[in-house]
Every structure is written in C-alpha cells, then in structure tokens.
Design a protein around this nucleic acid. Structure first.
Lengths: 236, 236
DNA sequence: TCGAGTCCTTGATGCCGCTCAAGTTTCGAT
DNA sequence: ATCGAAACTTGAGCGGCATCAAGGACTCGA
C-alpha cells in the first residue's frame, strides 16, 4: 500500500498502535471493511483546534461532516438576549455538522472546542457519494438521527413540563445510567449544565445542595457525585 | 395491470381523479417513477381512524412508518405529572413512527387523530428494504430528519431561554411565514398551542390580549389573527 | 509551587407565569 | 336550529426561580 503517506497527509489520525483510522471508531462507519474505510479516509481532512476555539458559528457555510477524533467540543445555541443553551457535547467518534449537509448549507449553532481537539472532516460531496454507494451508512445515520431526535424532543418536553428540581434529578439518573455506576462525574461545568437544563448555575447548586441535605446524593468533588438513593431522587 | 384491485385492497388511497398514490404526495418518495411507486404502494396498508382515536401510545410496539393521507394527527408526550406537550401536528404527506423504525421498536409518544384520518402504513422490513434498494429515499429521509432535528433543538432552546411573551411572538412570526400572509389561522386550540410553547392556555390568552392592546395584532376569530406590526412583535 | 482567573456557593429580593375559579363564547352533534 | 360540552377569557393570589451580589474554592499555566 503505497498510500500510507498519502493517508497521513490527508488524515493523520491513523492510530499506529491500534491500527485503526479515525473514522473506524465512528459507529456509522464501523461496519465497513478495510478497503472501504480507506476509501473514506482518503477523502477526509484532519484539523486541529486549541481549547476554546470556535469550529463554526451560526450563519457560516458548511464544509461537511465533522468527526471528533480526540478531545471534545460543545454545540450550543444563542438566544436573542445573548443567553446560550448547550445542545450537546461531542466526544471521540461522534459527529456534527449534519444539519448543513442535507438542508441549508449554513450552520445554525456554535461549535467550540472544550479541550485540544482533533477533527476529521468529510466534504459534503464525498459524504453524499458514500451515502449513495454504501446505503448501510445512510441507514446507520438514520438510526443516529432518529435517536438524536428522540433525545431532543424529550429534552424539550422536560424543559417545558417538569420543574427544575425534576430536571436535575432526571439528569443525574441519566448519568448514573451512562456511567453504569452510582458514582458519576459531571461532564461539564455548572454553567453549561444549567444552560443544558434550561436554568441557572445558582439554581443547580441549590438543588444539588437540597438533594445532599435530603441524603440522596453526596458531592465528593465539584463534578463528582455519588448517588445514594436513586429511587427517592426520581420521586421528586 | 391486473394489480389495480390488489392495490386498492392493500392501499385504497389511489386518488382516481389525480391518478396519484397516497405515497406519491410524500416528499421522501416523490422522486420515484411510477413503477417504483407502485412497488411501494403494494406493500402499504391503509388504515382509518375516527376523530380522537389514538394511533399509538408510548411503549407500544412499532408497526412501521405511518404516512398521513387525509386528515391530521397530533404527536404529544406526557410528563410524569400528567401534563402533555405537543411535539408536532402532521398533515397530508407527512410521516411519523420513525423513532421506532431504526432504534428501539417501541413508540415514545402518543399519536392521536385530530379529524377523521386515513393513513398508509409501510412495514418495518419493507421500509428497510426500500431504503437499501433506493438510497435516494434514505437521503431524502436524512434531510427530513435533519430538518426536524434543527426544529426540535431550536424549540428546546426557545423554551429554555426565551420568555413566554417572546415565544408567542416568535410563533406568530413563524405562522406569518408559513401562511405567506399577515392573516393567519392557528392550526390548533389554545391548550395544544400552550403545551407546544411550554406554557398554559391562560397565559396564551393574556399575551394575545396584550399584543392586541398594543396594536400589533387583531384577533378576528378564535383562531384567526391578523398581524399588523410584525417588527414590533419581534422586538418584544 | 504559587497566584490569578474562573468557577462555585449561599443569601436576599422581586417578578413572571402557574393555579384555581367563574363567567362567556364557540363548536359540533343531533 | 338547538342544546350541551368543550374551549376561551379574565381576575386574584402566590410560589418557584431568575437576578444581583459577595465571599470562597478550585484549576491551570507559568
């Protein structure tokens, strides 16, 4: 394979130790065989961002699909009044930029690097080609979208109908499930958690303090929480 | 084509006058040629519901994809406390049931007929087959999902960050755009509009009354509103 | 290791919007 | 056309939560 260096120049995200391409960790691609993966990798570009830098902003033209290789980023929206709402945090293997891929070609949210970040970028046209050539990719992407849609609608419903207390409790329950452990580490600061749950950092602090006073949780570090009584929490 | 009666028995939604199948009005299918359409129609089943009847409920197994042929239905979720939030209203040509198609096989919301309703149903397996056979369908569906996702995230952000007044104003602005006219007809009752915007019917009434008092709108009928000063409305 | 900046906590205050209630209008079925 | 039920409006009261403010804790880079 003389293309080794070529791959590197296009997308240097080949993990030499694990012999895997950046895209191979992505669920929507991981059913492809090595040759197909390489075809995709060849069209991918690699980009790095320092902590805090914006990857894109609302109104900017879309380049294509962004796949996180290392680090993490947050997607957020901004209201007329300047408040922001965190939509989602992306870790390795997750992707973004899709809204601009299929409909309008401009982004509708902000994407900001939370840590030193490495992305793989697949151009709009390449992506369309792959989707037609390998319909399985489209199917996986449909599944992913469908899942995101369900999450987003559930989120909207929660913010619309539940009290802040319930939302915080439900979030903690979700984290316990995600970590498969009653000791959880919040993946973001209060400010982002607040904007995600549609409240303020102050209220988050207060509610967590209330839960602790009730003996349902224990706050060990700023972002470390041990859930003691999950059932009580969900009865709020 | 001896299949005429067969089509009818499977899906009686052939509009004799317009020579179009129920599925041909659906954006995700309307690029197919007649033969392909017929192939899909053949696998579709037709179902009717009287006003007020539930098409599905959360937890029920998914049958497949529901396509609205005549009438309309509303999708809504229910909170622990029994409050409901309207997610979306579907009219002819729109579809639902997708969340159950790709991920879990159970529904996560309610679907209820708002008027006498006729649906086309395409089974889960058939749908998967079509998606692989005609990747263009998958691409259109991805575009539709992506658009719904953007809408849903925007909705969540609005409920989380904007005041009720702003949300009502933005909703009216959206309707003006949808109707391409400053005289609009609300597509739902106060109760549903309220649950859609994350508020109560009383508050909707009050805000509309405020807007009218300010001279920005005129309420001509219960659901008929004339927007007089759109700019002022958006400055709220 | 240290210091500055950021993040978090806790308190006091005020208001937006929900709730409950009662009266009025509209809708839809017979 | 008429009646009953459902939907809408308006009012009064209150509570949850945002806001503003100040002090304390943590983090990260030098």
């Amino acid at each position: 394979m003389k293309t080794m260096s070529e791959e590197i120049s296009n997308c240097n995200h080949k993990d030499h130790d694990k012999n895997s391409y950046c895209v191979s960790i992505v669920p929507i691609f991981n059913h492809l065989d090595a040759a197909e993966l390489k075809e995709i990798v060849r069209t991918a570009r690699s980009v790095s961002y320092p902590r805090g830098q914006m990857i894109y902003r609302p109104g900017e033209l879309s380049d294509g699909l962004y796949i996180v290789h290392k680090g993490s980023l947050r997607i957020f929206r901004e209201s007329s009044g300047g408040k922001e709402q965190l939509v989602r945090i992306l870790g390795p293997g997750e992707f973004s930029g899709e809204s601009a891929l299929f409909n309008e070609s401009v982004h509708d949210a902000y994407a900001e690097a939370l840590e030193p970040l490495e992305l793989c970028m697949i151009g709009r046209e390449s992506m369309q080609t792959f989707l037609l050539k390998y319909p399985q990719i489209a199917l996986k992407m449909l599944a992913e979208f469908s899942s995101r849609l369900a999450t987003s609608e559930e989120q909207a419903a929660r913010i619309a109908m539940e009290t802040v207390e319930t939302r915080v409790a439900l979030y903690l329950a979700g984290q316990v499930e995600a970590w498969k452990n009653t000791c959880i580490k919040l993946p973001m600061r209060r400010k982002d958690l607040a904007s995600h749950l549609g409240t303020t950092p102050e209220t988050i602090s207060r509610k967590l303090a209330d839960f602790e006073a009730a003996g349902w949780i224990r706050q060990t570090g700023q972002r470390d929480i041990e859930v003691i009584d999950l059932d009580a929490l969900l009865l709020v």
